[in-house]
Write a protein that binds this DNA or RNA. Structure first.
Lengths: 194, 194
DNA sequence: ATCTACCCTTAACCTAGCTTAAGAAATCAG
DNA sequence: CTGATTTCTTAAGCTAGGTTAAGGGTAGAT
């Protein structure tokens, strides 16, 4: 396991020259993460942009009453960071936690900015990456407004089949914005229909 | 009124050379839009990325029951487009409508791609622009999950004071994901507290 | 292998926000 | 200026989803 995973991922957008790959290889840091380990803790600055080579992570906020709300999951070949905190280097309100043991490739803000300067096409790649995430998030906002919990759950199963088999229902419920108890009711109801 | 508005806006991120400005000036199209005119209709492809020079627009989806749900507002110096449809050139499920008469500066996908190639720093600028929008949207998802309609309404007034004076409450309600009737109740309740 | 910590489900009761309806006030187009 | 269209509000009844509590099941750590 090495930085090759992230380089390969970036090359799936645009091929990179040998020198560029060497620069990338130099700046990414490989870390092994244990289950339940946090790679971002609310109140601290998000120091790394994280590429998931192996495992599954969630980013979540905690409300006034202490309830957790999942904003995003990230499994293999996905990126995760509190982008606001990462760019401003101000404290984050979010947490990123491993749902399984895993391996990540991380880069610091100043190193990523160095790479943006020295490998201009990275701007294009990361623009596309965030555009894709933006579209996903926008669809989610629309779904949340215009459909019931049951429709959203079915949509989740369809859109993220690899995740729905892998995550406990409590985590899915938190992502859908409902309680685990209600998700249980929804699932029962779906089953009874066939 | 001319393309200067958009060039000035882009220069607020990174200065541009004379040649670059000329290229930009060539490719943007100025249009006057009437109140209630749609610049994107669901079912059609989103052909333009739109910079708002004057006026106020909303992007919205329509659900199974015919209810409209506002996803985004855009006033002066903001951008609006269904980014998914714009990039894939597949039909959009969204509409963009003028809430007031206004002036927009629009660019076609192929022209924007031409500019990305010929003015590489535009990739950086548009990456930053979409990152900012992404952060906004992410905060919105979190807010929707972790607070009541009243808290969200107060948050909206604080975050978008220029919009809250300008928009009818029906539009704000649709953005907050509640009915106008319930917003009315919320407003009454806020007033009675002082 | 066993203990512990989650995880899933059920059920009774509760509440934030929706629906429907209808009138008054504001705004827009001609 | 005027009629037509939106917008805002109120109120009564309703429903999707939350809360609380409790039992059984499952998976991780040692």
């Amino acid at each position: 396991m090495s930085n090759q995973a992230v380089i390969q991922h970036l090359e799936s957008f645009i091929p990179l020259k040998g020198i560029e790959k060497a620069l990338l290889d130099e700046r990414f840091i490989l870390r092994h993460i244990k289950r339940k380990e946090k790679i971002l803790v609310a109140g601290e600055v998000c120091r790394y942009h994280t590429f998931v080579a192996q495992g599954c992570f969630r980013m979540f906020g905690v409300d006034d009453k202490g309830f957790e709300h999942n904003i995003q999951f990230a499994a293999e070949n996905d990126w995760i960071a509190d982008i606001g905190s990462f760019h401003t280097q101000k404290p984050s309100q979010l947490n990123i936690e491993a749902l399984e043991a895993g391996v990540v490739l991380q880069i610091k803000q100043q190193d990523l900015y160095f790479l943006y300067k020295n490998i201009p096409k990275l701007n294009l790649i990361f623009k596309v990456l965030i555009e894709l995430k933006y579209i996903e998030l926008q669809n989610r906002v629309l779904q949340n407004f215009s459909s019931t919990a049951e429709q959203r759950y079915l949509g989740f199963l369809e859109q993220y089949p690899h995740l729905s088999n892998r995550l406990p229902n409590t985590q899915i419920a938190s992502y859908l914005g409902i309680t685990p108890e209600f998700l249980s009711k929804v699932r029962k109801n779906i089953q009874s229909k066939g």
